[in-house]
Design a binder for these strands. Structure first.
Length: 434
RNA sequence: GCCCUUGUAGUAUAGCCCGGUCUAGAAUUCGGCCCUGUCACGGCUGAGACGCGGGUUCAAAUCCCGCCGAGGGCGCCA
C-alpha cells in the first residue's frame, strides 16, 4: 500500500480508532508532530490528531522520510500497526511513507507542547497555536460539552432555542454602557442582553432560550469581566421565579455531572477534578444576607446594593453555589415583579458561586400599565419602549427568566479565576486583536 | 478613572533589592556531528536576550525619570 495521489489528504483512521488488535494492518492517518526523537538509524515521532496521540517508528530505508521534518508540522502517515515496547503505547505505527502537508515555521511564538507554559498574553496573541496545547484544547472541548449539556437540559424541558438581534436601535434601557455604531446613517447599538426580545417570545413560544454573545462597554479590568461575553438566557411563560431557579439549578448540576463523568481526559490534561456540587443550592434572601453581614460588623442599609467586598464576605460564609433572593425593588430593573406580601421586595434572584455572580433573574411584570408606571418611576421614558410595550397588550403570559454568564460558569467548572482562559479571543478594554 | 506589580534569547527563567564578579548563567527550542527501542532519549558542539528614550555615576541588566507593553486589583457593571 502506498500513497497513490499526492493531492489526496484523506485518512483511513483517526488516531483513537487505531488499536493493538489491528497488528499487521496498513493505515493512513494524519496530524501534527508533537515530538521527534532521532536515534541514529532509527527515530520515534509522536503524532497527535484531535482524537489522540500515537507513536510512529521510522527505521532503515525510511529514515530519509524524516528529512525536513520538524515539530508542529502537519503530516500524513502511511504505515503498519505493530506491537510497541513503548511505556505509554501498546502499539505503534511503523512508517512506510510520510507526507509533510504543512511545515511549521521556526521560531514559533509559543511552545505548544506545554513543557514551559507561556504566559496568557503570548498565548492569546497566538491563540490558534495555543489549541495544540492539550491543556488549552481541553478547556474548549469542555466548553463544547457544557454547551451541549445546557441545550440538552433545556430542550428536554420544552425550551425552544431562539436568536435575537445583536444590532439594536434603542439604548434607553439604562444600566451598562453600550457600544454605539453607525447603521446606514442611523445610530445603533450592540445588544447587551436579549431581555426584551426573549420576554416578547413567551407570547407564542412560551419557553425560549438563547446562547449568544452580548456586549458591554464598561472599562472593567478584572478577571471576570469582558466587553464581549457569552450569555445563556431563558424566559418561560407560566413559571414563577422559583420555577426558573429550579431550571437553572438543574442545568448547573447537569453540566457538572456530564463533564465530570464524560470528560476524564480533559480533566487530566487540565489537572483539575470536576466535583458535582450538592443540591439543592442554599437560598439566602437579601434580608438574611444583610443580617449575616451585620453579624460580621458590616452594616448595610436596606435598599443598598451589595458591593463586591460585601459579596466577598458573604462568599466566605457560602463558598459554593447559592441563590441570593428577594432583592429590594429599587435595586432591580423596571421589568421585575414585586412580591405580593411586601411590595418593596422583588421576585428576583442572583445565582452566586461564593462572591462570583453567575446569573440573575426573576419574575417579570406582564401587565403593560404596571410596566409604564415602573418605567416612569425609574425615570425612563415609556414612549421609547412603545415597540416593546405594545406586545404586552396582545395577551402576554406571566413569565420569568434569567441570564447566566457562560464564561464565568466555565471558570467555576474548572477552578480558575480568569475568564480569558475560557474564551477563544477575549475582548476587553485593552484587547481588540487578534 | 484609580492603585499595585512587572518587562532579560522563540519560550519560560537566574541575575536587579545591595552598581564593578555579566565576556549576562542554567533549561527548553533551533542548527551541526555521534547514536537501532526512545519515551522530558542521551553525548559533543554551535546560534540566540537585558522593551524604547533620557539621567545619575569612573562604571548601569541592576539606581532615578519619561514613554511603550504586560499582569493583577479597586471602581464601574438591568
Amino acid at each position: 500500500m502506498y500513497f497513490e495521489h499526492y493531492m489526496d489528504i484523506s485518512r483511513t483512521h483517526l488516531i483513537e480508532d487505531l488499536n493493538s488488535s489491528m497488528e499487521g494492518k496498513d493505515v493512513i492517518f494524519g496530524g501534527w508532530v508533537v515530538d521527534l526523537r532521532k536515534l541514529g538509524k532509527m527515530a520515534f515521532l509522536t503524532v497527535r490528531d484531535v482524537t489522540g496521540m500515537c507513536q510512529v517508528i521510522v527505521k532503515g530505508d525510511s529514515m530519509s522520510l524524516l528529512e525536513g521534518l520538524n515539530r508542529q508540522s502537519v503530516v500524513r502517515i502511511l504505515g503498519k500497526i505493530q506491537a510497541s515496547k513503548a511505556k505509554d503505547f501498546d502499539f505503534e505505527v511503523s512508517a512506510t511513507e510520510i507526507q509533510v502537508l504543512a511545515k511549521a515555521e521556526y521560531p514559533l511564538p509559543i511552545d505548544p507542547i506545554g513543557r514551559l507554559e507561556s504566559d496568557i498574553d503570548n498565548r492569546l496573541n497566538s491563540r490558534a497555536l495555543d489549541m495544540r496545547n492539550q491543556k488549552t484544547a481541553s478547556i474548549f472541548k469542555l466548553r463544547s460539552k457544557v454547551l451541549a449539556s445546557i441545550r440538552e437540559t433545556l430542550i428536554k424541558r420544552k425550551f425552544i432555542e431562539i436568536n435575537t438581534p445583536k444590532i439594536i436601535g434603542s439604548a434607553s434601557e439604562g444600566g451598562a454602557d453600550l457600544f454605539g455604531l453607525d447603521y446606514f446613517g442611523q445610530k445603533a447599538y450592540l445588544a447587551q442582553s436579549p431581555q426584551l426580545y426573549k420576554e416578547q417570545m413567551t407570547i407564542g413560544l412560551e419557553r425560549v432560550f438563547e446562547i449568544s454573545s452580548f456586549y458591554r462597554a464598561e472599562k472593567s479590568h478584572t478577571g471576570r469581566h469582558l466587553s464581549e461575553f457569552t450569555s445563556v438566557d431563558i424566559e418561560a411563560a407560566m413559571m414563577d421565579y422559583t420555577d426558573v431557579m429550579d431550571v437553572l439549578e438543574s442545568i448547573v448540576i447537569d453540566v457538572f455531572k456530564n463533564t465530570s463523568e464524560n470528560c476524564k481526559t480533559e480533566q487530566q490534561e487540565i489537572g483539575y477534578e470536576i466535583k458535582v456540587p450538592s443540591s439543592p443550592f442554599e437560598r439566602v434572601t437579601y434580608t438574611q444576607a444583610l443580617e449575616e453581614l451585620s453579624s460580621m460588623d458590616i452594616k448595610i442599609e436596606f435598599g443598598e446594593d451589595l458591593q463586591d467586598s460585601h459579596l466577598r464576605s458573604l462568599g466566605e460564609k457560602h463558598p459554593g453555589f447559592f441563590f441570593l433572593t428577594d432583592w429590594p425593588m429599587k435595586l432591580k430593573p423596571f421589568y421585575i415583579h414585586e412580591k405580593d406580601d411586601d411590595p418593596t421586595l422583588s421576585r428576583s434572584f442572583d445565582l452566586q458561586y461564593g462572591y462570583l455572580e453567575l446569573s440573575s433573574g426573576g419574575r417579570r411584570l406582564h401587565d403593560p400599565e404596571q410596566l409604564r408606571t415602573r418605567l416612569k418611576e425609574q425615570d425612563l421614558d415609556p414612549t421609547s419602549f412603545e415597540e416593546h410595550l405594545k406586545t404586552f397588550g396582545w395577551g402576554m403570559p406571566p413569565h420569568s427568566g434569567w441570564g447566566m454568564g457562560l464564561d464565568r460558569l466555565m471558570t467555576v467548572l474548572i477552578g480558575i479565576d480568569n475568564v480569558r482562559e475560557v474564551v477563544l479571543y477575549p475582548r476587553d478594554p485593552d484587547r481588540l486583536k487578534p
